[in-house]
């Protein structure tokens, strides 16, 4: 029920953001849009805590709980960016994704995993927290990158209309994306190290054939690839934005593909 409320709140938050896009900047509407976004994320967090307390496990096992958790990651990242004035408008890029993820989770049914997750200890908690932070960074870079590409396209097409005026300047989007990528990469790197340490300590090997390990390493490689696109001739900002969007799609797509083809082989996936 709380998940449904969170979903409704996400959709509700999307409405004023879309209104701003079509009607131009209105300080009152920005406040309402930001407030609704925060409420939606709070409800989502409450739903996650409720799941944890009710089933005594984190919502990571099974597709629906994991999709919901991924949406929460993006929601928290969005709330972190909201106070940054114009940068807060990346909500328009991120909210539809959150609505899709949480909506998908609700359709599939957010149920606890029948398997014993058996995760515990400070190392594991840190691993999960840092991995979430890493994905948050990538989600922010994705939203900023998406808006960068739209703004870039509008400016190249010599249009300075409502869409262009609503989207933050290229420099702002580039900066937000860069910060998201840097923080995300550092966090995910640490999460991988801690995860491997935990796995070796508790399971005796690196478990490199585990789908979630494959997914985590691929996510890390995506970060590296995005950074690599900043090298070379031409506009590196544009390439970086494009890479962030493609990279995020690859991470999400790989997750779904692994989940569908390797179901039940791992706790997280």
């Amino acid at each position: 029920m709380i998940h449904l409320s969170a979903f409704v709140a996400y959709v509700g938050a999307l409405v004023p953001w879309a209104y701003l896009l079509f009607r131009g900047p209105r300080p009152n509407v920005v406040a309402v849009a930001s407030g609704l976004t925060v409420v939606a994320v709070l409800l989502h967090a409450m739903a996650t805590v409720d799941f944890w307390l009710t089933y005594d496990q984190l919502p990571l096992g099974g597709l629906a709980p994991a999709l919901s958790s991924l949406a929460l990651v993006g929601g928290v990242a969005l709330v972190a960016v909201l106070p940054l004035r114009e940068a807060g408008r990346i909500a328009l890029g991120l909210l539809p994704l959150l609505v899709a993820l949480e909506g998908g989770a609700l359709l599939l049914g957010i149920e606890p995993s029948p398997m014993d997750l058996g995760f515990s200890g400070v190392g594991f908690v840190l691993h999960v927290a840092l991995a979430f932070l890493g994905l948050q960074g990538l989600a922010v870079a994705f939203a900023a990158g998406l808006l960068y590409l739209i703004q870039h396209h509008e400016l190249k097409m010599k249009r300075l209309g409502r869409l262009s005026r609503f989207i933050p300047p290229l420099a702002t989007l580039e900066k937000v994306g860069r910060v998201g990528l840097t923080v995300g990469f550092a966090s995910l790197s640490l999460a991988l190290i801690l995860g491997w340490a935990w796995t070796v300590q508790n399971l005796g090997s690196l478990q490199i054939d585990d789908p979630k390990v494959i997914w985590a390493v691929l996510s890390w490689a995506v970060f590296v690839a995005i950074f690599a696109t900043r090298r070379g001739p031409g506009s590196s900002e544009y390439r970086s934005a494009l890479a962030a969007v493609i990279g995020f799609a690859v991470v999400v797509g790989t997750y779904l593909a692994l989940r569908l083809t390797a179901a039940g082989t791992g706790f997280f996936l």
């Binding site: 005026r165 300047p169 702002t172």
Partner: peptide, 13 residues
């Protein structure tokens, strides 16, 4: 002013 706005949309400040 359009020139200024364009520059602002690209560079921010």
């Amino acid at each position: 002013s359009v020139a200024v706005e364009l520059a602002g949309k690209i560079f921010g400040s």
